[in-house]
C-alpha cells in the first residue's frame, strides 16, 4: 500500500488482490481491553451527554400530555392512594409499630427506583438503537441516563411521602440525615445490576420478556412490604456427619455438630441484596429514630460496590458488539 507524501497526494496505487490473505494473521486480531479507571475518566468527560439524554427522556415523557410535568408528582400520589387503600388492610407482616402505609411506602420508594432503573435501564441500549449505531460516546451513558431519569422521578415521589407523614401526624426522626448514604449504596447497586443486564439483554432479546417478571418477583424477595427483621440473625449450617449426643451432668446435649458453622443470614442477604440493608436502615432511621445498623450498612455497601465493579466489567466486555447487533 501507499503512504502519503509530504504534499498529501500520492500516485494511484492499485491493490494486488492476490496479496490479501483469506483471514487476518492471528497476531493482529483485535482484543478489546477493559480498563475501568480509564473508562470512568472518559465517562466523566462525557457527563454532559448523560444530563442531556436524561433531559430528553424527562421532557419527552410529558411532552404531549396536557398536564405536562405535573404528572411527575401526580403519578406517585396515585400510587400512594392505591397503597393506602390496599396495603393498610394487609397487616400480617407487622410494621414495627409504625403505620403500615408509611412503613410500606418507604420500602416502595427505595424499591421503585431500583425497579425502574432496571426496567428502563435494562432496555436502554435497545431503545437507543438509533443513537447507538450512529454515534460515538461511552455506551454506559444510556443505562446511566435512564437511571438519572428514574432518580429524578423518585425524588419527586418523596413529595407524597411528606404528605403521608402529615396524614399520620408524625415527623421524620433526626436520624433521617443518614438517608443520602443509603441512597448512594442503592444507586451503586442499581448501576451495577443495570449495566450488566443491559449489556446482556442486547445479545439475548429473550430477556426483554423475562425481565419484568424477574422485577416483580424481586419485589417480594426484597423486604419492601415485610420487615427485614423477619430474616434471622443466626443460623447454624451443618456439613459434618457426626452428630454427637452426649449426656453431660444428666442433661442430654443435642445438636452438638462437628464441622458446622454459624452464619448470620441477615449479613449474607445484605451482601447479596444490598437493597435489604438500604430499606431496613431507611426505616430504622427515618421512622423509628434509631441509628443505622453499621455492620449491615457496611455489608450492603461492600456488596453493592462488588456488583458495580462486576457489572461494569461485564458491560465493557460486551460493548464491542453493541453497534453491530443493535
Amino acid at each position: 500500500m501507499t503512504t502519503a507524501d509530504s504534499a498529501g497526494v500520492s500516485a494511484l496505487v492499485v491493490t494486488d488482490l492476490a496479496s490479501i490473505p483469506d483471514e487476518p494473521p492471528p497476531d493482529i486480531i483485535y482484543r478489546h481491553k477493559v480498563r475501568l479507571i480509564e473508562s470512568l475518566r472518559v465517562l466523566w468527560a462525557h457527563r454532559e451527554i448523560v444530563y442531556t439524554l436524561a433531559e430528553r427522556d424527562f421532557r419527552a415523557q410529558y411532552k404531549q400530555a396536557t398536564l405536562g410535568i405535573l404528572w411527575a408528582i401526580l403519578s406517585p400520589v396515585a400510587t400512594l392512594v392505591v397503597f393506602v387503600v390496599v396495603f393498610s388492610r394487609v397487616k400480617s407482616f407487622g410494621s414495627e409499630g409504625v403505620p403500615f402505609a408509611l412503613y410500606a411506602f418507604v420500602g416502595i420508594l427505595c424499591w421503585s427506583f431500583f425497579a425502574t432503573s432496571l426496567g428502563s435501564g435494562g432496555n436502554s441500549l435497545l431503545t437507543n438503537k438509533a443513537l447507538l449505531a450512529k454515534t460515538q460516546f461511552p455506551r454506559e451513558c444510556f443505562p446511566l441516563e435512564t437511571m438519572l431519569v428514574g432518580g429524578l422521578n423518585t425524588v419527586l415521589s418523596w413529595v407524597p411521602l411528606a404528605i403521608l407523614f402529615v396524614i399520620f401526624g408524625r415527623a421524620p426522626a433526626w436520624t433521617t440525615v443518614w438517608i443520602p448514604l443509603f441512597m448512594v449504596i442503592e444507586v451503586v447497586f442499581a448501576a451495577g445490576i443495570t449495566l450488566a443486564i443491559s449489556s446482556i439483554i442486547i445479545q439475548m432479546r429473550d430477556l426483554v420478556q423475562v425481565l419484568p417478571l424477574i422485577i416483580s418477583l424481586g419485589l417480594f424477595a426484597t423486604p419492601v412490604i415485610w420487615p427485614f427483621s423477619k430474616i434471622p440473625t443466626s443460623l447454624h449450617l451443618a456439613f459434618g456427619q457426626h452428630v454427637h449426643r452426649a449426656v453431660v451432668d444428666g442433661h442430654v446435649v443435642a445438636g452438638h455438630w462437628v464441622g458446622g458453622i454459624t452464619v448470620n443470614p441477615q449479613m449474607i442477604y445484605g451482601f447479596l441484596n444490598p437493597l435489604g440493608p438500604v430499606i431496613d436502615n431507611a426505616r430504622r432511621t427515618m421512622l423509628l429514630g434509631l441509628s443505622p445498623d453499621w455492620k449491615l450498612v457496611a455489608t450492603g455497601a461492600v456488596g453493592a460496590l462488588l456488583y458495580l465493579i462486576l457489572g461494569y466489567r461485564i458491560f465493557k466486555r460486551f460493548e464491542v458488539n453493541f453497534a453491530d447487533i443493535a
Binding site: 500500500m1 501507499t2 502519503a4 498529501g8 497526494v9 500520492s10 500516485a11 494511484l12 496505487v13 492499485v14 491493490t15 488482490l17 490479501i20
Partner: peptide, 16 residues
C-alpha cells in the same frame, strides 16, 4: 484530494 475505492471488502485502488 484523494480517494479510496472499496469493492468486495477490499481496497481496490487508492490515490488522487
Amino acid at each position: 484530494e484523494r480517494a479510496v475505492w472499496l469493492a468486495d471488502a477490499v481496497v481496490q485502488a487508492v490515490g488522487p
